[in-house]
């Protein structure tokens, strides 16, 4: 039976590039041929979440949220808008970073929907963060002599937002790859404004755990960290701040290896995509298992 993949992302009414990573990861997965159809659906763009499912013909759909944390969007908005009436957050049985998947029926189309946890809390996301560090430093062996800051929103809207950041920071710390790994936040302590206070290493890679580049990653965070006084004038990579070299990576969601996490989510929910996972890792990463261990 044909299987389809629908990637659910936020999108934007104002920022033309918000949806770019979604389309680009979808294109990567489309090229593998693992799914009969791969579609994008958006909260703020079209097709809307409400009309995403009817654009795929398959009776069996893997629905993967391209969101960073578990919470309001993944537990309320997406299931409601996709009309997964039988949804209950208990079905994921998650502690905030351990969502799995749930198999439900869409009320409007009757399709079987395997509703997956968001990409942001999948274990393989840790490897995308590391890959992002490799990309921004252009060094496949980056780690020794470097600190790594994983940056997130914080608890402003959702307590799980901080959990996802801390979860990956801890996992990457346990890899013993970087000299230091820290979770930093925009609206709570430890704050990204004081990034250099939190690191001894001269070189620090800063990876914001955001799906797309936009106001936060391209204006707010660079100015808060002191990379620049005015985001419009840009900054260097690395940029020197208080005697540290800051390698600012921009949104982790733009890293091509993110396509692998989408596939991992679908695979965990039962999609037959093992060949595609290999293919995508080879094309977008360094071929090592995304889970790292």
């Amino acid at each position: 039976m044909d299987q389809a993949l629908v990637i659910a992302a936020h999108g934007s009414h104002l920022n033309a590039e918000s949806s770019t990573p979604t389309f680009s990861h979808a294109d990567t997965i489309r090229a593998t041929g693992a799914f009969a159809e791969v579609r994008e659906a958006f909260w703020k763009e079209e097709p809307s979440f409400r009309e995403g499912l009817r654009t795929v013909d398959a009776e069996e759909v893997y629905l993967v949220p391209l969101f960073i944390s578990e919470g309001y969007f993944t537990e309320q908005v997406i299931p409601r808008e996709f009309r997964l009436d039988e949804w209950d957050p208990e079905l994921w049985d998650s502690d905030g970073t351990s969502a799995t998947h749930a198999t439900l029926t869409a009320a409007d189309t009757g399709q079987t929907v395997h509703y997956c946890g968001p990409v942001g809390t999948h274990d393989s996301m840790s490897d995308v963060i590391v890959q992002r560090a490799k990309s921004v430093t252009d060094d496949p062996d980056v780690g020794e002599g470097f600190g790594l800051a994983v940056v997130g929103h914080g608890t402003e809207r959702n307590e799980n937002s901080a959990k996802a950041i801390e979860y990956h920071a801890q996992r990457i710390g346990e890899m013993d790859r970087f000299d230091e790994v820290q979770a930093l936040f925009m609206d709570e302590d430890p704050e990204v404004d004081d990034v250099t206070d939190h690191f001894e290493s001269e070189d620090v890679v800063v990876v914001p755990l955001f799906v797309a580049d936009g106001y936060h990653t391209q204006e707010d965070i660079p100015e808060d960290m002191g990379l620049t006084d005015d985001y419009r004038t840009g900054w260097d990579t690395p940029e020197t701040v208080d005697g540290h070299d800051i390698w600012y990576a921009g949104a982790v969601g733009t890293e091509p290896l993110m396509a692998d996490v989408v596939l991992e989510r679908a695979a965990d929910a039962g999609a037959d995509v093992s060949g595609a996972i290999e293919q995508v890792r080879q094309a977008t990463g360094d071929g090592n298992p995304a889970t790292g261990d």
């Binding site: 079209e46 097709p47 809307s48 409400r50 009309e51 995403g52 009817r54 654009t55 409007d108």
Partner: peptide
């Protein structure tokens, strides 16, 4: 996006208006 699907539903008398 989705205009073909909704046009078709309407033709079939199955457009789900909210």
């Amino acid at each position: 996006p989705a205009t073909v699907q909704n046009w078709y539903r309407e033709r079939e008398g199955q457009l789900d208006v909210t």
